[in-house]
Design a binder for these strands. Sequence first.
DNA 1: GGTTTCGTATGATTCGAATCATAAAGGGCG
DNA 2: CGCCCTTTATGATTCGAATCATACGAAACC
Lengths: 198, 198
Amino acid sequence: MGLIPKSIALKYSGQVIRVRKGDSVFREGEPALFFYQVEEGSVKMVTSSEDGREFIQGVFHAGESFGEPPLFCHIDYPATAIAITDSHVLKIPKDRFFQLLQENFAIHLRFDEGLCQSLRYKNMILSEVSFHTPEHRLQTLFRHLRETLPKKQGHIEVPFTRQVIADMIGLRVETVIRSIKKMESEGKLTLKGGKIRL
Amino acid sequence: MGLIPKSIALKYSGQVIRVRKGDSVFREGEPALFFYQVEEGSVKMVTSSEDGREFIQGVFHAGESFGEPPLFCHIDYPATAIAITDSHVLKIPKDRFFQLLQENFAIHLRFDEGLCQSLRYKNMILSEVSFHTPEHRLQTLFRHLRETLPKKQGHIEVPFTRQVIADMIGLRVETVIRSIKKMESEGKLTLKGGKIRL
DNA sequence: GGTTTCGTATGATTCGAATCATAAAGGGCG
DNA sequence: CGCCCTTTATGATTCGAATCATACGAAACC
């Protein structure tokens, strides 16, 4: 699985780099020179406001690509990509990547599918953030995670802290904590030592 | 201009349909069977909440395509497309459209660019809606419009009502009206008979 | 031309999430 | 183990946008 098989990536000057937890793959304002895909671990994409708050545009896991828009729009990165665990990231130079797409229509199609998935996610979060209550936002995010994350023995353990969740749906930690507690008391989810189970 | 020239569209079973102001091109829940592109007029994409409020995911003008994600993700439409003026819309059957992309790499690339532009817009609005004040949201939206819309003799006249603006950035009409009045008094924009000039 | 409808405008009030403050429970590590 | 730092937890207070109410100008309609 993964958008681009390593065997093919190698033919197009692809190389895998290691990124430590907390380090950035690229930062806001830098020119977009490479295509990136997570091989191992996970990477978050964040934009931060003047006063230090950050909004998490997305979290990417093994097999998912990220940071494509600037490649196609020929602009500098409008956001920063940071590893949230030690990770391996595949990078392919921009022009070689376009060549790869041209010569592999099937991959190109799957690439588009990835973009579209991303758009769907954003549309979803957007309408949530713009007119739904904290609880509703959480439920929608959790539903999405349920559909996306691999489930082990019937349930899913949310792999994010409450702060990260807050930054994903535009809320404050305290609000997320309170809402989750409320949802637990209503039986909408269970808490197992702080971890959220769906 | 426009993503797909009419001459090429015709080779792939493309046809132009007329849509009256207020009528829908497709509705939430319907299967995605066609690729769509605005030829004339403009189309809005909306999701509505249970209680009737609507959020405008985007407004598309001549030359822009819309409703692509469901085509690639093989899902039903999660939103409804409505003409906001009498419009002409080009439609190409799904399978023919994929064929078109496969046989026209340059168009495929520009198509991706469109998707990426859309993603950029959403990322922008998303961080605005999730942690900025009404005034900041308006300024960012207006900056975007300044970069996007064609300007006539040095200024731009915003082609949206305050209600539409509110639905684009997750605010209420009254809040938009108040903020705009304030911005006018601070010289950040001018009002000419109700119309907003940038 | 007069009436209806839509868009803009403004004031008063409510309400809920942000903010501020503080504490307790985990988790990693020397 | 005991210490430190992160994360979770909870209460009190503030504050600003939503809500409610109402009016008025302008465009659309018969």
